[in-house]
Design a protein around this nucleic acid. Sequence first.
DNA 1: GGCTGTATGATATAACATATCAACCCCAAT
DNA 2: ATTGGGGTTGATATGTTATATCATACAGCC
Lengths: 158, 158
Amino acid sequence: MTSQAFEAHDHRSCIAEGVASAVQICAERNLQLTKARQRVLEILLSEHRAMGAYEILEVLRAEGLGSQPPVAYRALEFLTKHGFAHRIERLNAFIACTHVDNAHAPVFLICRACERVVEAEADPAQGEIDRAARQAGFVVERAVREAEGLCPACASGA
Amino acid sequence: MTSQAFEAHDHRSCIAEGVASAVQICAERNLQLTKARQRVLEILLSEHRAMGAYEILEVLRAEGLGSQPPVAYRALEFLTKHGFAHRIERLNAFIACTHVDNAHAPVFLICRACERVVEAEADPAQGEIDRAARQAGFVVERAVREAEGLCPACASGA
DNA sequence: GGCTGTATGATATAACATATCAACCCCAAT
DNA sequence: ATTGGGGTTGATATGTTATATCATACAGCC
Ligand SMILES: [Zn+2]
Ligand SMILES: [Zn+2]
Ligand SMILES: [Zn+2]
Ligand SMILES: [Zn+2]
């Protein structure tokens, strides 16, 4: 699972590994990966694209796992709180994390044409956000790093 | 108008200069800074904090400048499109630009305690977002750089 | 049994944003 | 002076995202 999901890859292993790693981490940390939570993670893992809470909710509803907004939002809160998913602020939507183990300073690259979203890793210490914060004496608790544009394939007209 | 609005300053000049500079630029570029547009800019300039469209709309409504959501959103679209205001994605809200003339790669520092928002300038070429994009062959059209945390005053318990 | 903490269910509402069509106004070309 | 286009505004409706609140279920513990 590299950061380059813009490229072709064995996507079934993305899902399998993502779920397996969440199962293991939850066991280690005594977190309850309940049915709905796991299913939402699978739904997110199924596409390299950000999904809205209501889009996820539709799937849950079809499967009898819940039909009201809080069902989706609660699962998403759990997943984002524990690092299994991220919120994409630009899209008001969510995506599965593809760097579950590592320390996290993700940069999201959002293709406006094919909607794919890739999570890359940044070194925050070398970043423009931390630099600006340091200079202002600002204590960063959370940073949003998102770029919208065209992925290599869409940019080249492929 | 430095980037350090976390510090005390003559705030009346923030408003006066912000409006004056917008008036001038609109004249130069043949943009129509209509009554509603200018008033929304003034409203945004009146606080170093991001305001939601509906919060702005309340003010417009009280002043008889319009009462329906599109009124606020249209003015905000004009202001953001031409660089007089920015959208803060993290907050789904808007703030007046404090660097109107310069080239723009703003970093926003959002204090979760006092709600103040400061716009700092980044050098995108030295940034983590551009670096990640270059590495992935991604063409950036728009970047979101926002940090949430505590401003110097709130961090020190002042 | 009763207590506690966590997770779910269920209802309602808040908050944010856009689509659409009609009306108006300015200005310029015929 | 009329006509037509572009940009702006008015007005209504609707779509989308998110949270508040209260009730219920269930498991682990004493
Ligand atoms: Zn994949
Ligand atoms: Zn991640
Ligand atoms: Zn000021
Ligand atoms: Zn503060």
